[in-house]
């Protein structure tokens, strides 16, 4: 871990200004992913801005009937919130499927969205990785890729986004609220928040330098059966091989997003429209352009079967 200076932010404005003023500053909240990466010198900030002092840790009703979730609301608190459990069960389920009790007690809503990939080559600084070191190449494509991406990938990167929570947020059409270093506020739909790797896999989100997430807003509840199904080798405390998040209405219509297959939560309007036609058709839509490797080809069938189980559960 490289040395860094440290400050506790006193306001959102001060935090964004400080971030803009340093060449390599990072906000730190829970720290559960950032510190992990700093120890390996995958992240090397020279200045840390502790944002835990900013408040931003409440969940409030919006005038539109939804919820505004403060950026610093801990994963465990968000999952346990009565309104979330009642109206956005998918979100609770996704959060509880992730990490461990200890990590969820620290990890925040914003930090969860900003998690970086768990690709083992990204994590090993001896190996080429375009995400870690642009232009160095991708070792994963012809390496060990069992848990990596199959769709929306590029010849530069086949990493996946590891978040469970983000899958639920995507299905629920959450909106990410930010404040820029110039004080400008933005509302970024979750669909646009994460980027595909293309030839710049090191740029993962739409956030600009110094911009900070202040909240994630959920639109008003959409009801339906809300199901999050995470598939993994061991029964807990593991990243998803794939996951399926869905909200299915009594008439069979609904929304679905898939995790563990792409650089971002994977959801397509056309696939949603096909939900009444069953898992096979939806999967073919979702994974139309899939280019799996020999190691992760199983994910295509796994998505279809898991989605089938989810739809059956929704019906049952």
């Amino acid at each position: 871990m490289k040395s860094f200076t440290y400050e506790r932010a006193t306001s959102v404005e001060a935090a964004t200004k400080a971030a803009a003023a340093h060449d390599a500053a990072r906000f730190i909240a829970g720290g559960t992913n950032l510190l992990d990466l700093m120890k390996l010198e995958i992240e090397t900030p020279t200045h840390l801005i502790d944002v835990n002092t900013l408040g931003l840790d409440t969940i409030e009703a919006t005038s539109e009937g939804g919820l505004r979730i403060g950026a610093l609301v801990r994963n465990s608190d968000l999952a346990a919130d009565e309104r979330v459990r009642r109206d956005y069960g998918l979100l609770s389920r996704a959060l509880l499927a992730g990490a461990s009790g200890q990590l969820r007690n620290k990890a925040t809503t914003a930090g969860n969205l900003l998690q970086r990939t768990r690709c083992p080559y990204f994590y090993d600084t001896n190996q080429p990785c375009n995400k870690r070191q642009p232009g160095s190449g991708c070792s994963a494509i012809d390496g060990f890729s069992r848990q990596l991406g199959i769709v929306g990938i590029s010849s530069s990167c086949i990493a996946t986004h590891p978040s469970d929570m983000a899958i639920a947020m995507r299905v629920l059409d959450a909106v990410v609220e930010t404040v820029g270093s110039d004080g400008a506020k933005r509302s970024i739909p979750i669909a646009d928040f994460h980027r595909l790797p293309g030839d710049t896999p090191h740029i993962e989100t739409e956030l600009k330098k110094g911009e900070i997430i202040t909240a994630v807003v959920l639109p008003k509840p959409i009801g339906g059966k809300q199901i999050y199904r995470k598939v993994r080798d061991r029964a807990s405390y593991a990243f998803a091989l794939i996951s399926v998040g869905a909200v299915i209405q009594p008439d069979g219509t609904g929304r679905v997003a898939v995790g563990g297959v792409a650089h971002k939560p994977w959801r397509l309007d056309a696939a949603d429209e096909d939900l009444p036609s069953g898992a096979g058709r939806v999967t073919r839509r979702l994974l139309l352009d899939a280019q799996p490797t020999e190691h992760n080809a199983y994910k295509v069938k796994l998505v279809e079967r898991t989605l089938g189980a989810v739809l059956a559960e929704a019906k049952g």
């Binding site: 829970g30 559960t32 510190l35 992990d36 200890q102 990590l103 620290k106």
Partner: peptide, 22 residues
């Protein structure tokens, strides 16, 4: 690296991984 839980302590009554906290 937050992958084993051996460093678990309680901070203000909540359990955390002390290895992933400054």
């Amino acid at each position: 690296h937050g992958q084993c839980g051996a460093c678990t302590v309680m901070v203000d009554g909540r359990r955390i991984n002390s290895c992933l906290s400054l």
